[in-house]
Nucleic acid binder design. Structure first.
Lengths: 212, 212
DNA sequence: CTACGGATGTATCGCGCCGATACATCGGCG
DNA sequence: CGCCGATGTATCGGCGCGATACATCCGTAG
């Protein structure tokens, strides 16, 4: 999972660890908290020993011969290899585990711009299936347990159900967009510029206008 | 984190591992996927060796003397100890780490019925602070990066922001309810389900009815 | 002018939790 | 009668986290 994210970032530009982490936070930040160095550096080493990435020494060739007084540790710039790019495509196509709170989905989605259309669709539908299952589970629990559990637990389940329903709707929208072969949303952050391509058939119910 | 959840469930009734896991899924399911046995059993052992729980042998006293042919492994029923109850209260009061995707919050919330009012408030406000920080971060990114990243990444960030805004509003509501000293939600998703009797200790009735 | 703190930068250690896997029993249904 | 799914306990490898350590650079407050 981290492998995919790192290869994806390095696919855009060579980078050293610290910068890599910041880019990672921007890319997958919406789904996962920033990854820790305790994962990053070991993973980088693993990727390197697998041959997916290499060190692209950043030395400006003037003081590298001096392993100086305090064991100087210059920044280490990594770049992706050809095998790494293959590996990246391979990882892109793999669906994560069957659990609901799979952070892998967010990472996959973040790299959709570099993913084939059919794979995009497969990932989105897989995710939808999972969230739907979860939604159904929560509905059952809520319907059956309304009398047996305390009000706080109930409220938590209600909130979870709401989030699940909302995500399913979001996914439906994205899937519909994918099927009609156009990039995701000319949607606007400011409400008045929302020119969302009128004159398209189907989608009578949808069109959740992204407002609060 | 699992410690808290397990102690909380066992606080209600003695139970064996398999059943425990199912109850756990009902309780904290809305926030986390079902926990795995690879966590559950080692944790149970740890809790036991710490003295928070004990084995309450389930044998109906008729065939326990026969360690029979195939090394029979009867179900092991655990129950919470007095020290375990103290530990539970101690864990309840602790705020989790400062990261956004802290699953600890959900677990804490699930046991709010057994949590002191001031602690409830502290947990809710802590959570709100975290989600607000995340929300601000995403707003900045979205405002600044609208031109620089691809449409998919943008969409992901938008969805994350939406979820964060929604959770903040949810938390505001809960906090307001807490402050006015009444249990969460006499809310009616369906009008007829309003007879939710929490039936728990304390909580003097202020009962100024309020809808969400 | 200096020292102080904050950003940049690399790295390790312990451990919580996950997913896969193994193995055993029991009840029901074809 | 035999198969299968639910019940039930358990281990193993490994990923990722949080804490921690340490070193450099730079702006600025004293």
């Amino acid at each position: 999972m981290l492998d995919l994210a790192i290869l994806g970032i390095l696919h855009e530009a060579p980078m050293h660890g610290y910068e890599l982490r910041k880019q990672l936070a921007l890319k997958i930040g919406p789904m996962r908290a920033a990854i820790s160095y305790g994962s990053l550096y070991p993973t980088l080493r693993r990727l390197q020993s697998s041959g997916w990435i290499t060190e692209a020494g950043e030395s400006s060739a003037d003081d590298e011969a001096v392993p100086p007084l305090t064991s100087r540790r210059g920044r280490v710039v990594y770049k992706i290899t050809a095998e790494g790019k293959e590996r990246f495509q391979e990882l892109l196509a793999q669906t994560g585990p069957e659990t609901y709170d799979d952070p892998g989905f967010g990472v996959h989605f973040a790299f959709f711009a570099r993913t084939d259309a059919d794979i995009r669709l497969r990932i989105l539908e897989g995710r939808r299936r999972k969230v739907e299952e979860r939604r159904e589970g929560l509905r059952d629990v809520l319907a059956r347990a309304a009398e047996r559990v305390d009000a706080y637990t109930l409220e938590l389940q209600r909130h979870g159900l709401d989030a699940a329903e909302r995500e399913v709707r979001w996914l439906e929208e994205l899937i519909a967009n994918e099927r009609s072969g156009r990039p995701p949303s000319q949607r606007a952050t400011d409400p008045e510029t929302s020119a969302v391509q009128p004159g398209h058939e189907e989608e009578p119910p949808g069109q959740t206008p992204r407002r609060m």
